[in-house]
Structure formats: structure tokens, C-alpha cells
Amino acid sequence: MTKIADTAADAVANISDGSTVLMGGFGDAGQPMELIEALLESGAKDLTVVNNNAGQADAGLALLIKERRVNKIICSFPRQSDSWHFDEAYRAGEIELELVPQGNLAERLRAAGAGIGAFFTPTGYGTRLAEGKEVREINGRNYVLEYPIHGDVALIKAFQADEKGNLVYRKTARNFGPVMATAAKQTIAQVEEILPTGTLDPENIVTTSIYTDVMVAIQTQSTELAARERAQGAK
């Protein structure tokens, strides 16, 4: 059963200290900003965070890092022009970084959700990111053994949900949402709107309700952009 929370604060209330938190988003697209802000307010600490990046500017994940609530981050691209809070924590030795190629990050999350014990991937073979890892030659090609990344909680942003917890996404904001939803014990989704069950076309569901534990309706700019697009299409 998917629970519908009234507020972002209610949605994240059960996240405990020391949790591994998967956070959707690629840059700002698909980033569950309101859930992350609620997590910041909740005071949860000693977190391990999995995200493609390590926070931008003075918002969301960047503020969690600024407040030293993140002990470790697993990501592919921490260094950005506006990642100053991560940069400072990293240079001070106050955050552990596990750098993972983006495709390996996605596949390790997928593996966690799909019950795979580990997998061999060609990505990273022969590089410093594969140092110390088991390698194997299979049919003449070299592969590196990679293990799943399991989350205690996933925070994701989808576009629409039905009351049952089925989710659809919007454009490239989909990014890590669907795989993270499968990889955590508890998936918390913020969505633009929650529609009556039966409204969404079953053929188009991307994340099925079995993965969605908690959801909360929060309108963001995505709603306005979708309305703009509909208006342009109707012209």
C-alpha cells in the first residue's frame, strides 16, 4: 500500500540517522528538491547519499553537505562550477567520496533492485576506478566486477501518480528515478499531482506501485512547463 503524505516533512519523517539515501536527479532535472529540503529540516545525520552529482549552489543536497550531515557520497560527477559546499567539505577531509562511472552507478542501482549479486561490466576496465576490483576476461573482452548499491530510502521526483502509487515522469527528469525506486527499502516520491486510480494509461506506467511506499503532491515548475507545452500543442 502506498501512503499519501500531506507534507514533505511527513513524507521524510521516518528517515533515521545513518541511512543510505538514494536521491534522484541529474542536475536540477528530476531532483526531489522539496523532499531533500524536508530531510535537511528533519535533522537526520550521518547519511550516505547516492546521487549523480554532489549538490549545486546553495540548495538541497549542497546544504546537507554544508551542514556536514553527509558522511559519504557515492556519485559520478561531484565537481561543478557551483559545487562549492562539496568542494570545501572534500578538501577539509570531512566527506568520503566514492566516485563511480555514471553507467556503473545506474547499473549498480538496477542490480540492487533486481536481486543481482554482482555483475561484470566493461566500463572502467584498466582505469584507476577499477583498481583493486576483480576482473575477468569473457569471450576476449575484459570486465570489472561491480556490486549493487542498496538504499535504505530513495527520494525521487516523478510527474504524475495515481492513488495506487503508479508513477510517470517528465522528459529527461526521469533519469535515476525509476532505478532508485527499485533499489531502496522505502521509496518516497514527490509528484506534481496525484490522480484517481485508473486515470493513467497502464501501458505508460514507468514505476509501478509495488515500488512506491510514500508519495506527496508538490507542484513545481514542471507543472507550469507541462501546461505551456499543452497550450503550444493546441495552437
Partner: peptide, 21 residues
């Protein structure tokens, strides 16, 4: 993806996946 400078903050993104894909 990396100049080898030891004090640089490493970032790889999709570079390694793109290289072999």
C-alpha cells in the same frame, strides 16, 4: 577525465561508459 593532478577533485560522469560503448 583526469589530468592526473593529485589535488584535483575527481569527476568522471559518463566518460568511461561513453569510451567503451
Amino acid at each position: 577525465w583526469h589530468t592526473g593532478a593529485e589535488d584535483a577533485i575527481p569527476a568522471v560522469g559518463g566518460a568511461m561508459d561513453l569510451a567503451i560503448g
